[in-house]
Nucleic acid binder design. Structure first.
Lengths: 207, 207
DNA sequence: TCGATACTCCTAACTATGTTAGATAAGCCT
DNA sequence: AGGCTTATCTAACATAGTTAGGAGTATCGA
């Protein structure tokens, strides 16, 4: 069996070190808070000095951006793993909300990075951001599949879902005070949208 | 007419300077972002050097804390100005939600300081925090007045309301894409809770 | 195998940050 | 006038992200 060219070897090693740095960054961020990421500390935990990190990432923000990309990828993967969804629209809605809230609650630092734009100068790169947008589009399609086509209802759904996640993380981290409300919230939303759709249907036929 | 004792004069002047510093801090924070508050810049805009600020606030966090206290006070005052509320529970709900969301949307930096705990080491002092808690208790009383007594429904209401505010600020700052949904959201919540209360009532009487 | 090249990591240093220590000058009180 | 308080300053410290430039090591072409 032939060995790979050494160029590739080096490239692989480079990528491996990048991954190691990112793992250490996640650990630090989970322990100390998202904004408390220190390049010197980070470098030390992977056996380097701070300037050496610049061989792998061109700035601290680039590290955040790579973490953002990882986070959205995890989100997309977990989202895909949801399928096939229950046939019953209401059950599918519940599953979707529960997935989102539990994904957020599982890692507060990740939630802050992905969904609260809280790092002073940081904005995700266009490439990273596109993944996130596609993911939201998938949610929209999901709702459309249930006959919920009004874009305002999509906005209301995202508000309700992120609101639950937000309150859960802010006011009961590690607990389930708002997670318990998910089924009820889904029912509330579902009944509302179906009623609303019926009303609009009637309004249209009688006009 | 007698002049005030000079001691008081000095104390007044001290408070006036504190207020001036806080005003400048708000301006800077609104322009550059909450986390971008720089003591040197702040000092310069009030005609001082950075260390002089320490005669007025014992740390940067103390400045944030004073701003937090001001923010919650503004919230409480604005909340009081809502009364008397409409008699119709649904209308009152709408007014309450609209008030909260518009208060948040009016000042993104203030929203971040009060409702998203985003500054690395900052937690509001006990004194400041108590005001905020009392304010939430007032919302709870409001709902109780409408016959919404279930604490879970209060949690659901806060999730829905903060969710709308959060989405509005994150995804359409300066616009009204989620603000437009407030009435609809209030109706959804109101119908849901009243239905739920009826169901529970029935459950109890038939048992 | 040798010299050139590329790569990785280092130390030193720059700028900016929040913060502390200590000095200076102005105003107040006795 | 002399002592006390207050407000403000400069100088300096620790820590942050970042840049410059060098040392050592592996890789590659001849």
């Amino acid at each position: 069996m032939l060995d790979k060219p050494k160029r590739d070897r080096r490239a692989e090693r480079h990528e491996a070190t990048k991954a190691e740095i990112l793992d250490a960054a996640w650990a630090q961020v989970r322990a100390e808070g998202l904004a408390a990421l220190s390049l010197r500390d980070l470098a030390r935990t992977v056996g380097m000095r701070a300037p050496s990190l610049y061989s792998y990432f061109e700035s601290k923000h680039a590290i955040y951006d790579a973490m953002y990309a990882q986070g959205t990828q995890q989100f997309v993967d977990a989202q895909r793993a949801l399928y096939p969804l229950p046939d019953e629209p209401l059950d599918a809605l519940k599953a979707g909300m529960r997935f989102f809230v539990e994904f957020c609650a599982a890692d507060a630092a990740r939630y802050q990075l992905l969904f609260q734009r809280t790092i002073p100068g940081f904005e995700p790169s266009a490439a990273s951001y596109r993944i996130a947008e596609e993911s939201l589009a998938e949610v929209a399609e999901l709702l459309t599949g249930f006959g919920i086509t009004d874009p305002e209802m999509l906005d209301l759904f995202t508000a309700l879902t992120t609101g639950i996640a937000d309150q859960q993380l802010s006011n009961d981290p590690g607990g389930d005070r708002w997670i318990r409300l998910i089924d009820d919230a889904a029912e509330m939303f579902y009944e509302h949208t179906t009623r609303r759709a019926e009303r609009h249907q009637l309004g249209r036929t009688t006009r």
